[in-house]
Design a protein around this nucleic acid. Structure first.
Ligand SMILES: NC(=O)c1ccc[n+]([C@@H]2O[C@H](COP(=O)([O-])OP(=O)(O)OC[C@H]3O[C@@H](n4cnc5c(N)ncnc54)[C@H](O)[C@@H]3O)[C@@H](O)[C@H]2O)c1
Ligand SMILES: NC(=O)c1ccc[n+]([C@@H]2O[C@H](COP(=O)([O-])OP(=O)(O)OC[C@H]3O[C@@H](n4cnc5c(N)ncnc54)[C@H](O)[C@@H]3O)[C@@H](O)[C@H]2O)c1
Lengths: 231, 231
DNA sequence: AGGAGCTTGTGATATCTTTCACGTGGCAAA
DNA sequence: TTTGCCACGTGAAAGATATCACAAGCTCCT
């Protein structure tokens, strides 16, 4: 590794790394050998300075006056993000969303595979989707331990989410990706990310609302919208 | 209107409002009439100061020495977020994920309904899911305009996403929630949010990797990480 | 070899966000 | 009414993140 991180990388920087990685994969397919921070930034909707800073958190991967070697940079990103190590994942809750996740080919393409699926509904248990047999919940503990599964996807109803989370953590899971619209409590050695559609939709709704309020600001009594910035 | 915003609310503050809103709904169901910032913060995994500041971006909704009236605060949040106005939404791409989204009862419960669905595959067109008939793509423009649909969910393959986005914007859509793993380009009057599972999973993978690499002192007090990519 | 032209990596700076800490207003009980 | 406690709202401080701007390093051309 060319360099060592001096300071902790911001969360968002790490997330942007994923974008860079994916963009690099596309560039490589297109036969592009070298890319500048400027170029990468336009492709990912970032800025050149941001790209350079983000990468600099992890080392110096480029060559001055030249840019970044696509293949080598992609390989570094892969290493940092842990892509391609074939992390096995477990899925709990094989309903509408869970079934879609099982069928999703984006995971295997990035080197993450759902290798086990669980559901509490006896009618779901035993069904097979994409070579994965749905197992009953009482096999979570044994299966997760045996296969050393560190990552789990949670697609159960919000009411069941906290209890299932605790089962999974007890079984040894270290990372959880939660889809239920609820704020899960996990111990500090467990990493949690959430995909919450309500938040996304309501955020858009807020922006839309606000933009319309501003449009009609001429008629509005509200005069202080644009007023002050601190200092 | 108890107050007017002095400064622009941070994106994350707005997203946290969604959490507060949902928590308030639960409290109300439980018959709780009043809540303090301290209480709300423990329920949402935030801090008391954060809760107060977030709310203060939009006005003063509480009573000193008492706390916030659950019903009234929820109602304010609803207004700010535009919940319950029955925003009609369009869905494009009725595949694995799109079908799950159509069946998702979380949207209607928050006052957002998918009222139209489109797909380019003739075999999908005409099928009915939850009272919604899947229409062909050449009806996007007319339908979206006629029904004044401002918000759309994008569940098509990444390759098709940019083109479909442009069709939707042309038809008058102002807000897009994208599920394809790609960085979409939209004009500045259009709002875009993305749910990108690769980013989530790779972020978790990074954290796991890092925690193992420097298995020594990592005192991360993580509670919850909810997605956000700025446009 | 030297210079022109380019792009990185990074101090310094600006901006944004969170946290602290306390004045203020409010309630209840004596 | 007065006393004591409580919890909000908010300036100010601290902390985190993004942007600027430029020295340093690389390639190519003459
Ligand atoms: N459907 C969507 O598009 C969508 C989108 C975003 C979020 N979500 C969220 O994802 C979760 C699942 O949604 P869905 O639409 O697939 O619901 P669903 O009802 O179709 O599926 C839930 C599945 O979880 C199983 N389950 C219930 N309790 C369980 C338990 N204690 N242990 C194990 N399995 C259990 C059920 O048997 C069912 O198969 C919900 O929290 C929902 O809010 C769904
Ligand atoms: N399946 C999942 O769980 C999942 C999870 C996260 C993200 N995604 C993303 O969501 C998108 C859809 O995934 P999926 O699994 O549902 O795929 P899918 O192939 O099952 O569905 C895609 C649908 O889009 C339609 N389509 C293709 N091109 C179109 C076009 N130009 N216009 C309109 N419709 C078109 C197809 O006919 C198909 O019905 C993909 O970008 C995928 O990466 C999927």
């Amino acid at each position: 590794m060319p360099g060592t991180p001096r300071v902790k990388a911001p969360q968002m920087a790490i997330r942007r790394l994923s974008m860079y990685y994916r963009t690099l994969a596309v560039l490589r397919e297109q036969g592009v050998a070298s890319v500048s921070s400027e170029h990468l930034s336009t492709l990912t909707g970032s800025t050149a300075a941001q790209v350079r800073r983000d990468l600099a958190y992890f080392g110096s991967f480029g060559r001055r006056g030249v840019g970044y070697d696509v293949e080598s940079l992609q390989s570094h990103m892969r290493g940092i993000l842990g892509i391609g190590e074939g992390w096995p994942m477990a899925l709990v809750g094989v309903g509408n969303l869970g079934s879609a996740l099982l069928a999703y080919d984006g995971f295997p393409r990035q080197g993450f595979r759902i290798v086990e699926a669980f559901d509490s509904d006896p009618r779901r248990v035993g069904t097979v989707i994409r070579d994965v047999v749905v197992k009953p919940m009482d096999q979570v503990r044994e299966t997760v331990r045996e296969r050393r599964i560190a990552m789990a996807l949670l697609a159960v109803p919000a009411k069941a989410a906290q209890a299932v989370t605790e089962q999974l953590i007890d079984a040894g899971v270290r990372c959880l990706l939660n889809f239920a619209p609820i704020s899960l409590k996990v111990p500090s050695h467990v990493y949690l990310a959430s995909v919450d559609l309500s938040i996304e939709v309501e955020y858009l709704s807020y922006l839309l609302r606000e933009s319309r309020a501003e449009d009609s600001a001429s008629n509005d009594i509200r005069t202080d919208v644009t007023t002050m910035m601190p200092l």
